[in-house]
């Protein structure tokens, strides 16, 4: 008698009929999705109240594998779309899930303004240090002097320190983990989902097909070993000290966790102060009451 097959607890959060995924063997994106599903399980938020928005690129495909309402927007524009959705539907938890190219390059302006406004969004950025889907071009997070298809002689531009950028623009929650730190990442995601305001989680993840291969850094597993060896957890450290560098120590942890009025709350408060009883705050009908 064989034991009954136990279903993986995260299956219900995933569109199993869409598997296998488009991601390469050894890619770190799927690992982060697994952590996200576990975070959903742990956070106990009703799935009906969750919407996931992604941009374009390998990580942009995450929305398609989650069994929730989701929207796959154009390149770089996940944050503005999500901000509009959130303002129209304050009853929803809106998560933006995208990559380093999408969020820090073409979507960089939206990123800093959403953090400044404290838009009520959880932004998960899988940082694989390259544009995967277009074939491995240099991004604002590619280290000097890593090789990319558009920097065949090595990258030469200064990179973004994304946690510092988010922090300095006013994000209320900033954390960084790697694809190796599955437990901490899932816990961090669960914590961030239940918080309000602009929350940012960066995840360093291997891209074996392009970034690792081109830089002769081995397979996905080698990179996981590298993350294990080189990562140092420093919770609460000043984000000015967490910049990453090529093959150097990786500072991970929760760097920022504070409270600040969200975009919607600040808007409501201002209108109430200025207009008094004349202001009628918008009450989201919510999906359940949306019947015409």
């Amino acid at each position: 008698m064989s034991a009954p097959v136990k279903e993986n607890p995260v299956n219900k959060y995933l569109r199993m009929e869409r598997m296998p995924s488009i991601w390469c063997p050894g890619c770190g994106i799927g690992t982060t999705v697994n952590c996200f599903a576990r975070a959903l399980d742990e956070s106990k938020i009703p799935l009906d109240n969750l919407a996931v928005v992604s941009g374009i690129g390998c990580t942009g495909r995450v929305a398609g594998y989650l069994n929730v309402d989701s929207f796959h927007t154009t390149h770089g524009r996940a944050i503005p779309f999500a901000t509009g959705l959130q303002l129209a539907r304050p009853d929803l938890k809106v998560v933006v899930y995208s990559g380093d190219g999408d969020l820090s390059a073409i979507g960089g302006n939206h990123f800093i303004h959403a953090a400044r406004r404290n838009a009520d969004l959880l932004v998960v950025m899988v940082n694989n240090f390259t544009y995967g889907m277009t074939g491995g071009q240099v991004t604002p997070t590619t280290f000097r002097p890593a090789i990319a298809s558009t920097t065949p002689y090595g990258a030469f531009e200064q990179t973004f320190n994304m946690p510092m950028l988010a922090d300095s623009c006013g994000a209320v929650y900033v954390a960084r983990w790697t694809a190796y730190h599955v437990k901490q990442l899932a816990k961090s995601m669960a914590e961030a989902i239940n918080k309000r305001g602009f929350r940012f989680i960066e995840i360093a993840a291997p891209c074996p097909t392009l970034y690792l291969r081109r830089n002769k850094l081995g397979e996905g597993l080698d990179e996981m070993k590298f993350y294990k060896e080189k990562s140092v957890i420093r919770n609460g450290v000043d984000t000015r000290e967490v910049a990453l560098d090529y093959r150097k120590e990786i500072t991970v942890g929760k760097f920022v966790d504070r409270e600040r009025a969200t975009l919607e709350d600040a808007m409501d408060q201002r209108y109430k102060e200025a207009l008094g009883a004349k202001y009628v705050p918008y009450v989201s009908p919510g999906a359940a009451k949306s019947q015409a």
Binding site: F81, A82, A88
Partner: peptide, 19 residues
């Protein structure tokens, strides 16, 4: 919004939400 693209982007997001 912070620019024209974010203006229409937020509007499409709101439309997805039922506004």
């Amino acid at each position: 919004a912070e620019d024209e693209i974010a203006g229409i982007g937020s509007a499409i997001g709101a439309a997805f939400g039922g506004a």
